[in-house]
């Protein structure tokens, strides 16, 4: 059984009179621990796919089974719980809360999960250490460099030890060297068993993934390693 199973997924946006088929007949199987890059022209539905995988959006039709469970029919609160416990997001624009320190930003998922303060402290300290932010714990986002911000965001995405990481153009706002560094960080996490799905416009970054998916007009146009059968 694959970790992610998408069957016949349709996502249609209504824009006034016209309809936009952001996703059409998407079938996709992704196993636990895979490293997948999603590429394709702008507007081809990459972000829409990622949002769907992350349970931030619902398909108009089709089924999404995550770890064997049909998650399309879950209630909003149940989906929130799945996001909290199984899914980590990394965004192009980091999405750090500006008034909170690096530490507090990283602790947010633990806060939302109701983890006790002293547990939180230990886990955040460990994460700061792991991501080379030990000296930056009490810095606010505007006191951090772009690379540091994205590392804080990744630390936050992984603090709950999710089963998969969804990254939408994680290096899009970073210079080449910093982007490289962030990519290696994500790959290291994948090396420890976390499924990694990265949307990117950067062909070099895309090629580093074992499996490359190409999208066009809301369809999966090519898949470098489709699972057998």
């Amino acid at each position: 059984m694959a970790q992610i199973e998408l069957d016949n997924i349709q996502r249609i946006f209504q824009l006034g009179d016209s309809q936009v088929h952001a996703l059409q007949d998407v079938h996709l199987r992704i196993d636990a621990g895979e490293y997948v890059s999603v590429m394709g022209p702008s507007g081809s539905g990459k972000s829409t796919l990622l949002n769907l995988l992350g349970l931030l959006d619902r398909p108009n039709d089709g089924h999404y089974r995550l770890e064997g469970r049909d998650v399309t029919t879950l209630s909003g609160d149940e989906q929130a719980r799945v996001r909290r416990e199984r899914i980590g997001f990394v965004f192009q624009s980091f999405h750090l809360v500006p008034r909170l320190s690096a530490e507090e930003n990283i602790a947010l998922p633990l806060l939302l999960a109701g983890i006790a303060p002293h547990d939180r402290k230990a886990r955040v300290a460990q994460a700061l250490d792991d991501f080379g932010l030990a000296e930056r714990g009490d810095h606010r986002p505007d006191q951090l460099s772009g690379g540091q911000r994205q590392r804080v965001a990744i630390a936050r995405a992984t603090i709950m030890q999710p089963a998969m990481l969804l990254a939408d153009e994680p290096t899009g706002n970073l210079d080449r060297a910093t982007g490289e560094e962030v990519t290696r960080l994500l790959e290291a996490l994948n090396g420890r068993g976390v499924t990694l799905i990265v949307v990117t416009h950067d062909p070099h970054m895309g090629e580093r993934a074992q499996r490359q998916i190409r999208m066009e007009d809301g369809r999966i146009e090519s898949d470098s390693h489709p699972p057998a059968a």
């Binding site: 931030l56 719980r81 996001r83 416990e85 997001f89 999405h95 809360v97 998922p109 939302l112």
Partner: peptide, 16 residues
Amino acid sequence: TSEIGLLKALGATGGV
């Protein structure tokens, strides 16, 4: 607004 979106992505329910 974007902070609310983030909290939801991090698994905050509407109730929270």
